[in-house]
């Protein structure tokens, strides 16, 4: 089960991260933001929106497989490792500035996921716990 969670969440985070990067590329392509048909057409004419949809489908299949066993509360929290990976890529791909709060937040997220991973390992060693 530990292997199932490890591989599952790794695949999920890769799909989620790529999807967010593609969304930002789509939004940039569709500039300026407007609530009209022209904006929607600019969105649909961007190849990135289709990459984002493909990543979403991949993430969806992975997520539904994980949820067969994983409790939704901790699993949903753990899926936010995406935030750390998206931050890293927002610097590399879009040249956005990452300051101290983002670094502190990233450390907190990783610490939280480590807690979740340890609590799952403990649950496994006690057969009655589910």
């Amino acid at each position: 089960m530990r292997r199932f969670y490890l591989i599952g969440f790794l695949v999920l985070v890769c799909f989620d991260t790529l999807a967010q990067v593609c969304f930002k590329l789509t939004a940039n392509h569709a500039m300026p933001p407007e609530a009209n048909l022209a904006w929607l057409l600019r969105v649909m004419s961007s190849p990135w929106v289709y990459c984002a949809i493909a990543c979403y489908i991949g993430a969806f299949v992975t997520w539904m497989t994980l949820l067969e066993h994983a409790p939704i509360g901790p699993a949903f929290a753990a899926s936010h490792l995406e935030v750390v990976s998206v931050l890293a890529l927002s610097v590399v791909v879009f040249g956005e500035h990452v300051g101290a709060p983002q670094l502190i937040g990233s450390v907190l997220i990783i610490a939280g996921i480590v807690c979740l991973a340890i609590s799952e390992t403990e649950g496994e060693s006690a057969p009655a716990a589910h």
């Binding site: 509360g73 937040g105 450390v107 997220i109």
Partner: peptide, 9 residues
């Protein structure tokens, strides 16, 4: 763990 992730976000 869940609260740490939420605080981090």
């Amino acid at each position: 763990g869940i609260l740490l992730v939420a605080c981090g976000v």
